[in-house]
Amino acid sequence: MRGATDLMGTTRRAALTGIGAGLALSACSAPARGEPGDVLAAGQPAALLIWAVARERLAGWPRKPGPEALTGLGPGAGDLPELGALAGGGRPAHLEALAGVGARMVIDYGDTAPENRALADRLGRRLRLEWRLIDGSLANMPEAVREASALLGAGARAAALATAADDVLDRWRAAPAGPSFYYARGADGLETAFGGALATEVLEGAGWTNVAVGSRDIGRVTREQAASWDPEVLVTLDRTFARTAAASPSWRVRPGGGRRRILLLPDVPFGWIDRPPSLNRLLGCAWLADPGGSAAVLSELSLGLYGADPPATAKPRWLE
């Protein structure tokens, strides 16, 4: 497995530092044009997109972030109400209640399959609001920022974030191949994302090999099944699972006698590879592009996405 400092040379690290500088300069740019709180997010991915591009326009959270997550978001995040989701998971919104919010538009961010477009059209007509569905694919993130910026009248802040996303993704795609991994979700680690799933796109796109095969998307497996795949690394966002697995021979010991490493990725205010599948994934891409790089890069990218630098900016941790 490659060492942590082998992924990028000085040139790439300097380029990423430049990204941070651009975001820092734009963090205090003028607010977007439009009325405060006049845009509904169809789901949590869209809420994060709106928050990053023109946060003063967001009417509320489909699912309000918890107290720990709010410490990593900018001023005003905790004042927004929880409105429920119009699309995707979470508590469904009451359409009649939303009518009293005074919104002028709904932004959805995710799968643009025909059935989702048809659903957007139906809900938009019922709400009597313009409904804009933006492609939420990882590769489209820079264009998603630009599209949202055009819709919301955002300025330099959004432009800098779109440029940063372009540069991060270019370097993420160029990262050397990584280890095989099993993505352990939840406190018991027995929910996983199978190869090709949206939840592991950040890792797989950087050349890491997902050992989970035999199904699609997200599913439950047994500990014996996970062990039989024999990953080099256990990847998780769950701190409880990371502590449990670190002390568990059945998770740590490989069939040949070696020990698996555990990679604990940050999940505050949002996960670095999914949860939700939105712009937060840029942080995972940036780290995979340069694991040994300057913490300032991730700090400035967090500032651009969230409007605040999460306290003591979390970093991925290797548990040996």
Rank of each mutant, 00 (worst) to 15 (best):
Gly292Phe: 05
Ala246Gln: 11
Ala212Met: 03
Leu198Gln: 09
Gly3Asn: 11
Leu138Ile: 10
Leu95Val: 14
Arg57Val: 06
Ala193Pro: 07
Thr244Cys: 06
Leu48Gln: 15
Asp108Gly: 08
Ala227Phe: 13
Pro62Lys: 11
Glu143Leu: 07
Leu161Val: 09
Gly84Asp: 09
Leu73Tyr: 01
Leu119Glu: 12
Leu279Gln: 06
Ala118Leu: 01
Ile134Thr: 13
Asp38Lys: 02
Ala296Thr: 10
Ala148Tyr: 08
Leu288Lys: 05
Ser180Gln: 05
Thr163Ala: 15
Ala97Met: 09
Ser250Tyr: 13
Gly90Cys: 07
Gly76Asn: 00
Lys64Gly: 02
Gly293His: 11
Tyr183Met: 13
Arg243Lys: 14
Ala158Leu: 12
Trp51Phe: 13
Ala245Leu: 12
Pro114Glu: 13
Arg125Tyr: 03
Ile262Asn: 14
Arg63Met: 12
Gly214Trp: 03
Ala87Asn: 01
Ala197Trp: 06
Gly43Thr: 04
Asp38Met: 03
Leu80Cys: 00
Val233His: 10
Trp208Glu: 02
Pro277Ser: 09
Arg33Asn: 08
Gly258Ile: 06
Ala199Thr: 09
Leu263Gly: 01
Ala41Phe: 01
Arg260Gly: 11
Arg13Ser: 13
Glu35Gly: 00
Ile134Pro: 01
Pro45Leu: 05
Gly189Arg: 09
Ala156Gln: 14
Asn116Val: 06
Val233Leu: 14
Ala103Asn: 06
Ile50Glu: 01
Val221Thr: 14
Gly34Arg: 06
Glu56Cys: 08
Ala41Ser: 12
Val202Tyr: 09
Gly256Asn: 15
Pro276Ala: 15
Ala46Met: 02
Ala120Gln: 02
Leu95Arg: 07
Val53Gln: 10
Ser299Gln: 13
Ile218Asp: 02
Ala69Cys: 04
Pro45Tyr: 02
Leu133Cys: 09
Asp79Ile: 06
Ala21Tyr: 03
Val221Glu: 15
Arg275Ser: 14
Leu288Gln: 12
Ala118Trp: 00
Ala164Lys: 07
Leu23Asp: 02
Pro179Tyr: 10
Leu169Phe: 04
Thr222Ile: 12
Ala27Met: 06
Met141Glu: 10
Ala113Thr: 05
Gly72Trp: 00
Ala113Tyr: 01
Leu288Val: 05
Arg259Phe: 05
Leu305Ser: 03
Gly153Leu: 09
Leu203Lys: 06
Asp230Phe: 11
Asp38Trp: 05
Ala77Gly: 07
Ala197Lys: 10
Ala30His: 08
Ala47Phe: 01
Ala77Trp: 00
Gly307Phe: 00
Leu129Trp: 04
Leu303His: 00
Ala15Glu: 12
Ala164Asp: 06
Ala312Glu: 14
Arg261Trp: 15
Val101Lys: 08
Leu288Ile: 10
Gly60Met: 11
Arg63Ser: 13
Glu232Met: 02
Ala14Phe: 08
Gly89Asp: 08
Ile134Lys: 06
Val145Leu: 10
Arg2Met: 15
Leu319Asp: 08
Ser137Val: 03
Arg132Ser: 07
Asp38Ser: 15
Tyr183Ser: 15
Ser228Cys: 04
Ala59Thr: 00
Thr244Phe: 15
Val53Leu: 04
Gly34Asn: 01
Arg128Ser: 13
Arg252Trp: 10
Leu301Asn: 02
Ala165Arg: 04
Phe181Ser: 08
